[in-house]
Design a protein around this nucleic acid. Structure first.
Length: 572
RNA sequence: GGGCCUGUAGCUCAAUGGUCAGAGCAGGGCGCUCAUAACGCCUUGGUUGGGGGUUCGAGUCCCUCCGGGCCUACCA
């Protein structure tokens, strides 16, 4: 038994996430967490909402609510959706928690003590009408390079030239449209990542088993141009974690907050502290996951995220940890994902293009989405959601291969032997052969799950389901029954045990269906199969079961067409 | 502009430089009748984006061209 710490990239607070966001971090993290628990490991699976930053303030203003209220409400909305998708977080925290305030200020203090913080005075654009400093991309204007009128202050989307906000012709606020802008002097803290570059590079170089996607992004940032740059970790905002040096005030930084990307990863740690408080546990109980000097030497820490998050998890956050010169746990493995596209284009939050988490659950149960998304996870390159593919995969895999297997076995048994595991007969060569085959397949499934090769794991699981149908076809209990009812009873007893086996193996992917299958078999033993002969005798003769009606219904062509039209764009 | 990823069957994807490039779906044929017209067996289908090179041997390594995508540090 091992101890496994798992975190998913924390979703931003300003709205409901789409399926691309879900499959890029939270869902695969949940799959892995469920698998690790099923194998008997001690798991701490954490996620949270990422609540600070300019977009949160603007979204709250648009909703006409105080930002704290807005975030509290949206946190609850996201938490409810997470429950709907059966994301099995041990805790779903908030980056605005008191625990994160304390830890973020603590880390900043440690970094300052270690000489890794620099105060930099810089000039930034201030909007009088909006009463706030504007991040570069919240300033619009005409591109000096190509004349595009909606160029952003960081880059022109039309000609892709990188810009400085002061380059723009006729600059205006992207929030209010106001042209009443001025450049003001403001002081900020920079994390001196440059002086940690060597440590970071050595650490990245030691991670030879990480996905190429992860290490290539990290190396690019380490080596590109002048190499890793120092990074501003404070902002002029009202909503956020006040800048402090540990518990002490930070002279000259009054009224400023930490940059959201500084405090967000620290929330991984803080979330465990929230977990401890919520469950009435002592501090030591969460610190044993994070502090190498307080019990975390044997913890394996795995992070899940989309590729856009990689620089912050391979460089910025590790720089914070290393720079603290404290024995905090660094990540051991980063599983990163490409993007999921939607029907020939990108998912678009602003255009309402694609399927969002709430909409998905409103039309089909979580298992349908979990199965499709995980079995098509964008691991090696971007992948694409189409309704045709979704319908075909779900109908074939879940309804025909798995669901129908459960139906045909239970209904045959009910009609010939009643709703109890039948006695009589004995397992023979055919059963032994399948056991041998399943043993090999389950070991392959385990290997894929342990390596977080998600699509391969899904394919192997599906092959395990198929094996049940092959067995039934060749054993043909409906024929055997006519001559030798006892032998047919043995075949069905074996098949009912297969259902239980499938429930155990499938639970990480489709937890609700798996539970329904276990409940139907009247079984509570979900021990992961080791020796097949034992696993296939869990359901003893005489044990009652119930016959589930339609474990998975199919998606009709009409439904598919309707959804296709409904989610094409312009949400609402 | 620079960097990275990617291109394999109609579709979605596999293949430590080493049998005849494999699966699933779709298509075709046969079988079965327990089951949600489901299941099983067999089968059609490829100049691995184009071209050149290295090698006894290239989907895999190198060069080049073409197509798709991502990143490029103040959105998060």
């Amino acid at each position: 038994m091992a101890r496994i710490l798992i975190t998913s990239a924390i979703p931003y607070i300003n709205g409901i996430k789409h399926l691309g966001n879900l499959v890029g971090s939270q869902l695969p993290a949940d799959l892995y967490a469920r698998y690790c628990r099923a194998r008997g490991h001690e798991v701490m699976f954490l996620c949270a909402t990422d609540e600070h930053g300019t977009p949160a303030e603007l979204a709250a203003a648009k909703a006409g609510k105080p930002v704290a209220d807005y975030c509290a409400e949206m946190h609850e909305v996201q938490a409810e959706l997470a429950r709907g998708f059966r994301l099995s977080f041990d805790h779903f925290g908030r980056s605005s928690s008191p625990q994160n305030h304390r830890l973020t200020q603590y880390f900043a203090g440690r970094l300052a003590e270690n000489g890794l913080i620099e105060e930099v005075s810089e000039r930034q654009v201030y909007s009088n009408a909006d009463g706030r400093f504007l991040p570069d991309r919240y300033i619009e204007g005409t591109c000096p390079n190509c004349g595009y009128e909606k160029a952003r202050g960081d880059q022109c989307e039309n000609c892709t030239k990188q810009l400085d906000p002061t380059d723009l012709i006729d600059p205006r606020s992207a929030i209010s449209g106001s042209t009443d802008l001025e450049v003001r002097e403001t002081k900020h803290l920079y994390l001196k990542q440059r002086s940690l570059r060597g440590d970071l590079e050595a650490w990245i170089d030691s991670k030879t088993d990480w996905p190429v996607l992860t290490t290539s992004i990290a190396k690019k940032w380490l080596n590109d141009g002048d190499g890793l740059q120092d990074r501003g970790i404070t902002r002029d905002l009202s909503w956020g974690i006040p800048v402090k040096k540990g518990e002490a005030d930070w002279p000259g930084m009054e009224g400023k907050v930490f940059y959201v990307w500084f405090d967000a990863p620290i929330e991984y740690i803080a979330a465990s502290a929230e977990w401890a408080e919520k469950n009435g546990r002592p501090e030591a109980d969460w610190r044993r996951w994070w502090r190498l000097d307080e019990g975390a030497e044997d913890v394996r820490y795995v992070q899940f995220m989309g590729k856009d998050n990689v620089p912050f998890h391979t460089l910025s956050f590790p720089a914070t940890i290393m720079g603290s010169r404290d024995p905090w746990k660094l990540v051991d493995y980063i599983k990163s994902f490409n993007y999921l596209n939607y029907d020939g284009g990108q998912f678009s939050t602003s255009q309402g293009r694609g399927v969002f988490m709430d909409q998905a659950l409103s039309i089909l149960p979580a298992d349908y989405w979990r199965w499709w998304l995980l079995s098509h996870a964008p691991e090696s390159s971007d992948s694409e959601f189409t309704w045709e593919n979704f319908q075909a995969s779900v109908n074939k895999d879940l309804a025909d291969v798995l669901g129908n297997f459960v139906s045909r076995v239970t209904k045959f048994c009910r009609s010939k032997f009643g709703e109890v595991v039948p006695e009589g007969g004995a397992y023979g060569d055919r059963e032994q052969e399948l056991n041998d085959d399943l043993y090999i397949r389950i070991r392959a499934y385990d290997a894929h799950m342990e390596a977080m090769e998600i699509r391969k794991a899904a394919a192997e699981l599906r092959a395990i389901w198929v094996a049940g149908n092959e067995y039934l076809q060749s054993a043909a209990p409906w024929t055997v029954y006519k001559e030798d009812p006892d032998q047919a009873a043995a075949i069905i007893r074996f098949s009912l045990n297969l259902i239980r086996l499938y429930a155990v193996l499938s639970a990480p992917f489709i937890p609700d269906a798996a539970k329904a299958m276990m409940d139907a078999m009247g079984c509570e033993d979900d021990t992961w199969p080791a020796q097949m002969t034992h696993a296939m005798e869990r359901l003893a003769p005489g044990q009652a079961f119930t016959t589930p009606e339609m474990p998975f219904r199919k998606i009709s062509d009409e439904e598919r067409e309707e959804w296709q039209a409904r989610f094409a764009g312009q949400r609402g």
